[in-house]
Design a protein around this nucleic acid. Structure first.
Lengths: 113, 113
DNA sequence: GGGTCGCGCAACTTTTGGGTTGCATATTTC
DNA sequence: GAAATATGCAACCCAAAAGTTGCGCGACCC
């Protein structure tokens, strides 16, 4: 079966490449696509695309399914969701920090514990 | 001034490294931190950290400010926000696609135009 | 069955990235 | 002003990533 989302790092790294992000874009339309299909628009070799897909699959961003002679790839929204959650966590921490700072400035040094 | 968020690709790539993601984590507490401060926990050289910070800055994830002899780095929530928005866009496209598929299955082929 | 289509594997080349070391320089501190 | 701090810059090293080519093989179409 497809690997569950691993580290957020791997997922971010997976999207941190123009080719792979483009692939994710194509897959975001929902329809499972074959390697040949995914290679079409690009100016890369099928092999290059294959390698990128492997990276996306390993990081849990996409899933692979075999259908006859073709390998169909599909987006895994769970991975996307996890990344979003991670970023939201960072945002939240930041907002909390700002809120504490604001309180500190307005109320004058509150008890620190 | 600090560069505005560039491509989402650059931002994702910036977070796609354990060291840099850790740096972002440290900076998410809100307090601006110097390079020496950011290097403390790590087992890397200050130079290595400096390079990573440069990547984070170039991609717009963090901002740099000079204070005397030290360089203070700070998170740029706008960049984080942009990444979230990007991921949400992908999620939305996916959900829409699924909804269309569901409608198709339940209602039987609706007019396609 | 023969031709074509879609892939996988392996070997190899070329960039890019992560890290280090060494040295120079501006700021602080005493 | 001397010592200590906090950085910046440049040259280098090594490993990993991106991409290509060549070849073999199962799946499909007529």
């Amino acid at each position: 079966m497809s690997p569950q989302p691993l580290s957020p790092v791997a997922a971010f790294a997976a999207l941190g490449d123009p080719t792979r992000l483009a692939l994710v874009g194509k897959l975001s339309v929902g329809t499972p696509l074959s390697i040949a299909r995914l290679t079409d628009g690009s100016d890369l070799t099928r092999q290059a695309v294959t390698k990128h897909l492997r990276v996306l699959e390993t990081s849990g961003v996409v899933g692979k399914r075999q259908s006859g002679r073709e390998s169909l790839y599909q987006l895994r929204p769970a991975a996307i969701h996890d990344m979003r959650a991670y970023l939201e966590d960072i945002s939240r921490q930041w907002d909390d920090a700002l809120a504490r700072l604001k309180a500190f400035v307005e109320d004058g040094a509150p008890a620190s514990d």
